[in-house]
Amino acid sequence: MLLIKCPWCGERDETEFSYGGEAAIKRPLKPKDLNDEQWADYLFMRKNTRGLFLEQWNHSVGCRQWFLVERNTITYEIISTKRINSDALNSEVPQ
C-alpha cells in the first residue's frame, strides 16, 4: 500500500485517497476550433509514462483536496507531493 503525504493532512494510507490520473492536462480554451483528432487527443490520449510521472490524487475521505504527486511508476516511490496551486506548477494545471 502506498503511503501518501497529503499536502494538507500529512502522511496517510492509500485507502484514504482516490486516483485522478495524469496531471496538468489542459482543457482546450476554444473547443469549437478543434477537429475530432485534436478533441480525441485531449479527451482520451494519455502519456501513461513508465518512470517519473506527474499525477493527481484526491484525499477523498480526508480533506477532499486535489493535489499533485510525482511518483515513479516502476518502483512506486513517491518523489514529492504538492498543492495544486503552488507557484511552480500553476501554469501547468488545468484552469
Binding site: M1, L2, D13, E14, T15, S18, Y19, G21, N48, T49, R50, F53, E55, R71, T73, I74, T75, Y76
Partner: peptide, 13 residues
Amino acid sequence: DSYIGYGQRGSFH
C-alpha cells in the same frame, strides 16, 4: 489497482 503502475505488483488493500 487504481494507479498507473509498471511494477507487476500492487497494494495490499
